[in-house]
Design a protein around this nucleic acid. Structure first.
Length: 251
DNA sequence: AATTGCTACAACCGCGTTCGT
DNA sequence: GACGAACGCGGTTGTAGCAAT
């Protein structure tokens, strides 16, 4: 069963946006706000599909975008977040104010991948390329699936082709077992000394960017400047990550 | 000066998820 | 609960600009 196209292709422009189109889109969003992307093009007098408008606004026109070169700190943060989250570009972007998922994805593919390779590090697994002995990589998704006792979903490799492929079934089961008993999960190579607490029983495991009343947020846990929604009362500046899944938005 | 190859990044596409009815 | 529409994400493609030859 096919999905109907998102827009009338015959009457929409494609390719690079013109200055006039940008101005129309900016003016419309300033007047009416974001949202209703489907109806926006017609309302704004644009011959574009809603998706295209949304992408243009989010990746290029939004006034809070930083643009310009990435700093060394941003580089390292992206690498660290990627080692934790994999290709979850929107989650990574959420931790880099003023940066978009598309921008980070492009930057990863053009700069950071090469940077890691030149350091002899596999950009997918974040492990030394010639380090054949150490091949234990535990995915947070696998752990989360195990915590849900979702046996059917316990991370079938073919369902997650983008994830590191170094984890064995036995390792997955061990991780699941450890997770289920509330043991801290450690990724030896990340040197983040991760300590993950289970969410409280009454809350569903669906990951939403819920503000925490206790503990520290993800930004603080990485020793970063506080994010705008940070409510942490203090942070000692330790490079120790107390990672709570509820501070992450998971799909 | 012309051509070729490479890099960077904007934009598109397909699909999974969420939301409203 | 089922269904369709809309949204959002990640992978991929297209192309402009630059460097090397």
């Amino acid at each position: 069963m096919g999905r109907s196209p998102c827009c009338e292709k015959a009457h929409t422009n494609k390719g690079a946006w013109t200055k006039e189109e940008d101005d129309r889109l900016i003016a419309y969003i300033k007047a009416h706000g974001e949202g209703c992307w489907r109806s926006l093009p017609k309302a704004a007098g644009l011959l574009r599909c809603g998706k295209s408008c949304r992408l243009r606004w989010i990746n290029y026109l939004r006034p809070d975008l930083k643009r310009g070169n990435f700093t060394e700190e941003e580089d390292e943060l992206i690498i660290k977040l990627h080692s934790l989250l994999g290709n979850k570009w929107s989650l990574i972007a959420g931790r880099l104010p003023g940066r978009t998922d598309n921008e980070i994805k492009n930057y990863w593919n053009t700069h950071i991948r090469r940077k890691l390779l030149s350091r002899g590090i596999d950009p997918v697994t974040h492990r030394p390329i010639n380090d054949s002995a150490s091949n234990i990589t535990i995915s947070f998704e696998a752990a989360a699936a195990a915590a849900r006792d979702d046996k059917a979903a316990v991370f079938r490799r073919e369902d997650h082709p983008h994830q590191p492929k170094a984890v064995t079934v036995a390792q997955e089961q061990q991780a699941a077992a450890d997770w289920g008993h509330g043991k801290p999960l450690k990724c030896p190579d990340l040197n983040l000394d991760l300590c993950i607490s289970l969410p409280s029983q009454e809350e569903p495991m669906m990951m939403k960017p819920v503000k925490r009343e206790t503990g520290v947020c993800f930004s603080c846990s990485l020793g970063l400047p506080k994010s705008t929604d940070c409510k942490c009362s203090s942070f000692l500046g330790l490079r120790t990550a107390m990672l709570d899944f509820r501070s992450l938005e998971m799909k």
